[in-house]
C-alpha cells in the first residue's frame, strides 16, 4: 500500500534548478529581451538618417496654415475632430487658470476672448505625432500594422490595420484618429512621401514664420542638432519615457 514516492534528492533539485536558471540567463545574454526596444529599430547606426522634428513656440503665430496644409496634402477629412496636426491656444489668466482652445484645430484662426490686462501669459502650441522611438502605439498594435521605420518615422500600414483603436487609446499625445472612410488608424506620416523625395513636409512648407523644422538627429552638424544645442528644448510628457523625437523650444510647464 501507499503511493510510490518519487526519489528526489536535494542534489537533484539543485541540479535541475541550476540548469533551468543558468539556461535562462545564458539565453538572455545571447539575445537580450527588451520589451520596449523591440517595438522599434535600434538607431545605433549613426551614418543613416534618423528623422526628428522641432517646433519653436516663440515663433508660432497661430495662423493654422500647417493644420490646413496637412489636411490638403494628406486627404485628412475636412470636418473637425480629424487632425494629423493642429494648433492649441494656451491662455493663462491672472489667477493662473489655464485655458486651452483649438477651434477647428486653428484652421479658421483664433480669437482671444480675454482682455489683454487679464492675461498673464498666452501662446500657441502646434501639436502633431511625436514619432516616438519607444512608441506606445507601436507596442500595443496586435497585428503589426503600425511600426517605426528604420529612419525613425512611425507609420501605419493601411492594408494591414484592423481598426481596433488600441493605438488611438495608447497614444499619450492624442495624435491618432480612426479615418471615417478607410476605417483604419490614421496619423502624421511626417509627410514620408515628401521627405523621402527630398522635399520638406507640407506643414513646414507653408509655415510663414519658420516655427517648424525637420532634420536628421544623427547629423551632428545638421541644422536640427545645431538648433537643439543652442536652445532649451523639451519634449512633451518626458516622464512617460516614450522616446519622443518632437522637440519644443520655449515649452511652458502648463502644456500637456
Amino acid at each position: 500500500m501507499g503511493t510510490k514516492r518519487v526519489k528526489n534528492s536535494r542534489r537533484d533539485f539543485l541540479k535541475k534548478t541550476a540548469i533551468v536558471g543558468g539556461g535562462a540567463i545564458a539565453a538572455s545574454i545571447l539575445n537580450p529581451f527588451d520589451a520596449v526596444l523591440i517595438a522599434s529599430e535600434d538607431p545605433g547606426d549613426k551614418s543613416k538618417v534618423w528623422w526628428a522634428y522641432v517646433i519653436d513656440i516663440d515663433k508660432c503665430i497661430g495662423c493654422g496654415r500647417c493644420a490646413n496644409a496637412c489636411k490638403n496634402e494628406n486627404d485628412v477629412p475636412k470636418e473637425p475632430f480629424f487632425f494629423r496636426t493642429w494648433v492649441e491656444q494656451y491662455t493663462i489668466n491672472n489667477n493662473h487658470e489655464v485655458h486651452v482652445e483649438s477651434p477647428n484645430g486653428g484652421i479658421d484662426g483664433f480669437d482671444q476672448s480675454l482682455d489683454k490686462s487679464d492675461v498673464f501669459k498666452s501662446f500657441f502650441v502646434p501639436k502633431m505625432c511625436n514619432h516616438c522611438h519607444k512608441s506606445p502605439c507601436v507596442q500595443v498594435c496586435p497585428v503589426g500594422a503600425t511600426y517605426d521605420t528604420p529612419d525613425g518615422v512611425v507609420l501605419v500600414d493601411d492594408d494591414y490595420c484592423i481598426g481596433c483603436r488600441y493605438c488611438v487609446q495608447a497614444c499619450p499625445y492624442g495624435c491618432r484618429y480612426i479615418h471615417p472612410e478607410k476605417k483604419v488608424a490614421d496619423k502624421c506620416t511626417l509627410c514620408y512621401h515628401r521627405i523621402s523625395k527630398g522635399k520638406t513636409t507640407a506643414c513646414i512648407e507653408v509655415c510663414p514664420t519658420g516655427a517648424r523644422m525637420i532634420g536628421d538627429l544623427n547629423d551632428d552638424k545638421g541644422p536640427l542638432v545645431k538648433f537643439l544645442k543652442k536652445h532649451n528644448c523639451l519634449v512633451l510628457k518626458p516622464h512617460l519615457n516614450t522616446g519622443s523625437k518632437l522637440f519644443y523650444n520655449s515649452l511652458n510647464a502648463e502644456v500637456r
Binding site: E73, A145, L155, D159, Y160, T189, Y192, H193, E205
Partner: peptide
C-alpha cells in the same frame, strides 16, 4: 512581413507613393 521588424516592409514603399499636393516655392 518581418523583413525588418514586426511589420510589412513593403508598406513603407506604399506610403511613399502617396500623391504630393504641395509643389514648394
Amino acid at each position: 512581413f518581418g523583413e525588418k521588424g514586426h511589420y510589412r516592409y513593403s508598406s513603407i514603399a506604399e506610403v511613399q507613393q502617396t500623391q504630393m499636393k504641395y509643389a514648394g516655392k
